[in-house]
Design a protein around this nucleic acid. Structure first.
Lengths: 165, 165
DNA sequence: AGAGTCAGTTGTGATAAAAAACCTAATGCC
DNA sequence: GGCATTAGGTTTTTTATCACAACTGACTCT
C-alpha cells in the first residue's frame, strides 16, 4: 500500500526476481559480494549506503536464501555474509547487466571492469546460448509461451522464504 | 538527499545499467514493451502504476535512448513508445532475470511464461556463452580485470544522453 | 450535447530511504 | 586502569519519491 512498487501480485518470473533483488542497493551489494566482500563495514565503506538500509538489505537477502549469515565469533556476535548457491546463480544476471552498461553507457572496452575467458584467453562478452543445443541465440529465435499458473509472485515467494529464527 | 540510491558516482557498468533501468517499475515497463505494449494506457492498465510515475519513467527511457517516442497523431499530440536497438539489447537481461525467477522462485517449469527455441524445438533455458569461442561458460572460467577508468557513471551517462527538445 | 478515450499534468499526503547519532561488547594500547 | 577504536548494528529525525486522485486538453463517437 505504501510507497514501493509492489511486484507481489504479478504473475511473472521477472517480477519475482525483482521482488528479491530489485531494491535499490541490493544488486550493488551482490556485485561486491561476488568481488569478495563479506562484512558489514566493508559494504558500508565501499557503497556509502546508509547503515540501516544495508542492515535491512542483508536481512532480506538472507531471508530469501540468497546469502547466508555465518558466525565467525560468538562473543561479540559477529557474522559474515556469503552467497548461497541460489545467490551464486545470480552471476549471469550481473554479467549481463555489466555487458549492457559496457556496450551502451561506457562504450565497448571502456568500462571500468572486464573479464577474460580463461579457457580461450579472449576478452569475455556474454551471449545467450540455448542450454539444450548450445547454440547462441537471437531474440527472434524464441517463441513465448504463456503457461496457466495461478501463483502470484507473493505466493511463490512464500514457499521458498527462509523463516527468521 | 532523498530516498533513492544514487549510482552516478560509482565507476561500474552494473551501476550504469541500474541508473538507466533500475528504477522501480522500469523493468516491468520494458517487459511489457517486449510483449508488444506501446501506449500509455496499456501500461497503466496492465501494471496499475501511478500515472505520474509511468509518465516520468517513459520520459527517462526516451532520454536514455532506450525507447523512442513516435508520433501517430499530431492533434491531439499522441505518441507511441517503441524500443530502440539499445532497448532491444536489454532482452538478454530480461531473459536472464526470468530464468532466475523461474528456477529459484517458481521452480523450473512452473513459471507463468516460458520460451521455446524455434531452431531446436526445446524449451529454452539461457546459459552464458563466450562470444569469441562460443563455449558455454561457468563463473569460475572468468578472470576479473580492473581497468583504470576515470569516468563515473554520471559522466559516462552524460555523454550518451539524448537532450529533451 | 453529452459521454468516452487518450495522454498526460498537478496537487496532496504517506512512507521508505537517507543521514546522523547512538549503542553494546570486545580489543588494543599505553 | 583508562581511553580509543572496531565491528555490527539500532534508533531517531528528515526528506525525496511514490500512490492516489482529481483535473486538463483535444479529440471522437453517438
Amino acid at each position: 500500500m505504501g510507497r514501493t512498487a509492489d511486484y507481489t501480485n504479478e504473475r511473472c518470473s521477472i517480477a519475482a526476481t525483482l521482488e528479491v533483488v530489485g531494491d535499490p542497493w541490493t544488486l550493488l551489494i551482490l556485485r561486491d559480494a561476488f568481488a569478495g566482500v563479506k562484512r558489514f563495514e566493508q559494504w558500508q565503506e565501499r557503497l556509502g549506503v546508509a547503515r540501516n538500509v544495508l542492515a535491512s538489505r542483508l536481512k532480506s537477502l538472507v531471508a530469501h536464501g540468497v546469502m547466508e549469515a555465518q558466525r565467525y565469533s560468538e562473543r561479540p556476535p559477529r557474522q559474515e555474509y556469503v552467497l548461497t548457491p541460489k545467490g551464486l546463480d545470480l552471476s549471469p544476471l550481473l554479467l549481463t547487466m555489466a555487458e549492457w552498461g559496457d556496450q551502451h553507457v561506457y562504450g565497448i572496452g571502456k568500462g571500468p571492469v572486464h573479464f577474460v575467458h580463461k579457457t580461450c584467453g579472449c576478452d569475455f562478452h556474454p551471449r545467450l546460448a540455448c542450454e539444450a543445443c548450445g547454440e547462441v541465440i537471437d531474440r527472434r529465435d524464441l517463441r513465448r509461451v504463456v503457461h496457466e499458473t495461478s501463483q502470484t509472485v507473493g505466493e511463490a515467494l512464500e514457499a521458498v522464504k527462509i523463516p527468521a529464527e
